[in-house]
Structure formats: structure tokens, C-alpha cells
């Protein structure tokens, strides 16, 4: 077997084994997005004006928001396991073995991508039960998965970089908590930016989450808006390259 895939495969298997043993993390990770959709969807749909969303079904509007929010959470948590590995000394064991340093990082990308894809499918499945059928069909679901994975990789890279930059795990969790909420609430995840006050709308339009959510939302509500989709995918690839470059610089300094 190719040594690179042998080591990367083994590391990726480890992340899945850990997830399967951490029952609570597994259950919350898979079903929390479903709760978002069901609970918040039910409470918000009566409090909002459907005309502002371009659809009469608030669940259909919110699905894209929940998809991107979920990837945001999983991606930003992507560095957590390595913080623990560093604290227990397990990371030193991995680094003392003859593996390519990148295999640890790539194994996290594979793990977070697979997890995000699974979460997205659960969300879309739940939405389907609420009569939300993506306008772009199966190919659209593929496109949503692609957008999700591209966003997840960049965020995971960012999280890994932060994990090595910030020395304590409590500091890391505080920072993640601090950036997650504004990224979600000052975006088009739960409400259309058109209904926001002008200043908030300006901020929301600067938030990359808004653009990603809008692209996924188009795939669910409207169909193939190619220009929008290509721009977002291009931007996400640029985001990934930027995050991976930045983080590998931090990691190289941290692990020699």
C-alpha cells in the first residue's frame, strides 16, 4: 500500500473511532442540526414575514442556513481533537513516527468533510420530511455537498491553526464561541438580509457566510444560478488555499 495513504487512512479511522465511542458528541453532532431546523424553524416561521424570503415555506428558506451553520460548527471544531492530542502528549508520539506531517492535517480534512457531508444529508433528509424538495434535484444535492466540503476544509484549516496558536483549550473554545454567534446571526442564515436595518445589512453582506448561504439557498429554492454558484465556489477555493497556507505556516513553526 502507498505509505502516505496507509498512514492517512489509519489516522482518519482513528477520528471516526473516537467519534463513535463519544456517544454524546455523536448524537449531538448528527441531530443538533435537525433540532435547529425543527425547533427554530417552527418558532421563527410565525414570527417572520414570508414575503421577505421569496418563499412561503420558512423551512425551505432556513434549510440553507442550517446547512452552512452546521458546516461552520463542525469546521471550527476541527482542531479540537489535536488540542487534546497535544495536551496528552499523543501528538508527540504521532510526530515521532515516520509520517508525512501533512497526513495528520489531511486526515482531519477527510474526517470533517465526511462528517459534514453526513450532517448535510441528514438536514436535507429532515427538510424533505417538511416538504422541502431542492429545486435542483440530486445534482443540486451534490453541489450543496461540494460547497459544504469546500467551506469545511478552509474552516478546519483555520481551526487547526488556531489550535496550535492558542496554548490553552479553554482559550480556544472561548474564541470559537465568540466568533460563531455573530457569524451566524449577522448573516442570511435565519432571516433575509433585505429585512435587516441598513448598517446590519452592510455587515451581513461582508460576511462570507451570507454568500455561501445564498448560493446554497438558490440551489434549494430557485435552481441553477450559475454565476452565483461559480463565484462562491471560486471564493471558497481561494479561502481554502489561504487558510491552508496560513495554518501550515503556524503548524510548521509549532511542530518543527
Amino acid at each position: 500500500m502507498n505509505p502516505y495513504w496507509q498512514e492517512t487512512g489509519a489516522l482518519t479511522r482513528r477520528w471516526f473511532r473516537r467519534l463513535l465511542r463519544e456517544r454524546m458528541t455523536l448524537i449531538f453532532g448528527l441531530f443538533q442540526p435537525m433540532l435547529w431546523l425543527l425547533l427554530f424553524g417552527s418558532s421563527f416561521k410565525n414570527a417572520t414575514n414570508p414575503l421577505a424570503f421569496g418563499t412561503g415555506n420558512y423551512f425551505a428558506f432556513m434549510t440553507a442556513g442550517v446547512v452552512v451553520m452546521t458546516v461552520l460548527n463542525s469546521g471550527l471544531a476541527g482542531g479540537v481533537d489535536l488540542i487534546f492530542d497535544r495536551e496528552t502528549g499523543f501528538l508527540d508520539r504521532l510526530l515521532a513516527s515516520p509520517i508525512a506531517r501533512s497526513s495528520i492535517i489531511v486526515s482531519r480534512f477527510l474526517f470533517v468533510s465526511a462528517l459534514s457531508a453526513l450532517q448535510i444529508l441528514i438536514i436535507l433528509g429532515t427538510a424533505l420530511l417538511l416538504h422541502v424538495v431542492p429545486a435542483t434535484g440530486l445534482a443540486g444535492i451534490g453541489a450543496i455537498l461540494l460547497v459544504g466540503v469546500l467551506l469545511g476544509v478552509g474552516l478546519t484549516a483555520l481551526s487547526l491553526g488556531l489550535a496550535f496558536k492558542i496554548s490553552s483549550h479553554s482559550g480556544f473554545f472561548s474564541l470559537i464561541g465568540f466568533i460563531t454567534l455573530p457569524l451566524i446571526f449577522i448573516s442570511s442564515a435565519l432571516v433575509s438580509v433585505e429585512t435587516m436595518p441598513v448598517w446590519l445589512k452592510a455587515v451581513a453582506l461582508l460576511n462570507p457566510m451570507t454568500w455561501t448561504i445564498n448560493a446554497v439557498r438558490s440551489l434549494i429554492l430557485h435552481g441553477w444560478l450559475w454565476t452565483q454558484l461559480v463565484i462562491v465556489i471560486g471564493a471558497l477555493i481561494a479561502f481554502d488555499i489561504g487558510c491552508v497556507t496560513l495554518s501550515s505556516r503556524i503548524l510548521r513553526r509549532a511542530v518543527g
Binding site: R14, R17, R18, R21, E22, D85, T88, G89, F90, D92, R93
Partner: peptide, 8 residues
């Protein structure tokens, strides 16, 4: 340290 993965 106890450099093991307690879940494995």
C-alpha cells in the same frame, strides 16, 4: 505524559 487515546 500518559500519551494514550483513552477512547481506543
Amino acid at each position: 505524559e500518559r500519551a494514550v487515546d483513552r477512547l481506543l
